[in-house]
Design a protein around this nucleic acid. Structure first.
Length: 357
DNA sequence: AACAGATTCAACCGCGTCCCA
DNA sequence: ATGGGACGCGGTTGAATCTGT
């Protein structure tokens, strides 16, 4: 019920937008706001249906859209959230500032899904495809995945609800004046970047020692809570395994290769602790030449046990001591991990976006 | 240079949900 | 409680572009 009449039924234009149409739509929304999408086209002098205008605005013309390549962290976040939420693109987009659900969906379908498949990971279930991974990783994967799957099922529903709340809150915020916004005691100071829930930050807050005095990484952004982390794992890897890293780096080219590099670590059971950047205002600031380990959530699903050992990175054989330790602490770590994520979800305001004009 | 196949991504389609009278 | 309008979401399409032969 309630379906809008299609464009062709009322003789409206379809297909690609012309610069003139874009200009009309932009000018109208800048002056009046979009208001009712249904009423907008005639008011703006466009021979389009409201739906088409809304899509054009939300997916392309909106000023707060970041276009261009996805950063490594964005890719990781997408994968992680997809593992939790499935094809809930709008919910995933809630956690990727300046990216649209459509863009994320396209990127998933054209890039990430294929890469995961190539790596032997089922992009739907985020589980290892039988026989495509080495035994160690595969065994761990099955074990850990089984132990986490019920949690994921429960909590994905919860995250969905959180995403919904975030959307609603965003709408309220968009309707509020800046002064009202500022008056809300739970809101962050207007002068600081809006907090953006990031599952990686949650991960870090739950599991990672933030101190990394020897870090060589530099990052944009000033909010300490959003600072990325150069972890001991990353350092150990970049130092003790620098030769190997160099060798591997030589073999790999470009961002995609680096992504593969990270993924291989995950598959081999080596989980570094993420280095991280906050997306807002510092995209592309990660260091191509520095090990940027994003074990991340898919990694957790594949192998949620160890976060300590870096020597396994390029060793085909796993470290038995670490494995034992991992098993002992597995449950506790999983619990900490999930608790960290969901306490972060609960404590964070939804990502704020500039109010629509 | 020309063609074919593959890839990308903006845009469309149709359904579900929300809201209001 | 119900029906209809409006909007948002996820899946799909197809033109444009890229890549390989």
């Amino acid at each position: 019920m309630g379906r809008s009449p299609c464009c062709e039924k009322i003789g409206l234009k379809k297909g690609p937008w012309t610069p003139e149409e874009d200009q009309k739509l932009l000018a109208y929304i800048e002056e009046h706001g979009h208001g009712s999408w249904r009423a907008l086209p005639s008011k703006a002098g466009l021979q389009r249906c409201g739906k088409s205008c809304r899509l054009r605005w939300t997916n392309y013309l909106r000023p707060d859209i970041k276009r261009g390549k996805f950063s490594l962290q964005e890719e990781q976040t997408i994968i992680q959230l997809h593992a939790l939420l499935g094809n809930r693109w709008s919910a995933i987009a809630t956690h990727l500032p300046k990216r649209t659900d459509n863009e994320i969906k396209n990127y998933w379908n054209t890039h990430l899904k294929k890469r995961l498949a190539k790596m032997g990971i089922d992009p739907v279930t985020h589980k290892a495809i039988n026989g495509t991974l080495n035994n160690t990783a595969g065994d761990k994967s099955a074990k850990v995945t089984a132990s986490l799957s019920h949690m994921a099922q429960w909590e994905s529903a919860r995250l969905e609800a959180e995403a919904r709340l975030a959307r609603e809150s965003k709408m309220r915020i968009a309707a509020s004046t800046p002064s009202k916004l500022h008056a809300q005691s739970t809101s962050p100071p207007a002068s600081t970047p809006s907090p953006c829930f990031d599952v990686l930050n949650a991960w870090q807050s739950a599991k990672i020692d933030l101190e990394s005095p020897t870090s060589t990484l530099t990052f944009a952004g000033s909010n300490a809570s959003m600072l990325p982390f150069s972890t001991t794992t990353a350092l150990e890897l970049s130092e003790s395994n620098s030769n190997v890293w160099q060798q591997r780096s030589d073999e790999l080219e470009g961002e995609e290769s680096e992504w593969k590099f990270v993924s291989k670590q995950q598959l081999q059971g080596m989980h570094g602790k993420e280095t991280e950047e906050h997306f807002i205002g510092c995209e592309e600031s990660w260091f191509p030449g520095t090990v940027n380990i994003g074990a991340g959530f898919t990694g957790m699903l594949l192998d949620g046990s160890n976060m300590h050992d870096t020597s396994e990175c390029w060793d085909e054989s796993s470290n038995g001591q670490d494995e034992q330790r991992s098993q002992v602490s597995e449950d506790a770590e999983n619990k900490n991990y999930w608790n960290g994520i969901f306490s972060m979800v609960n404590s964070e305001q939804p990502p704020l976006q500039p109010p629509l004009l």
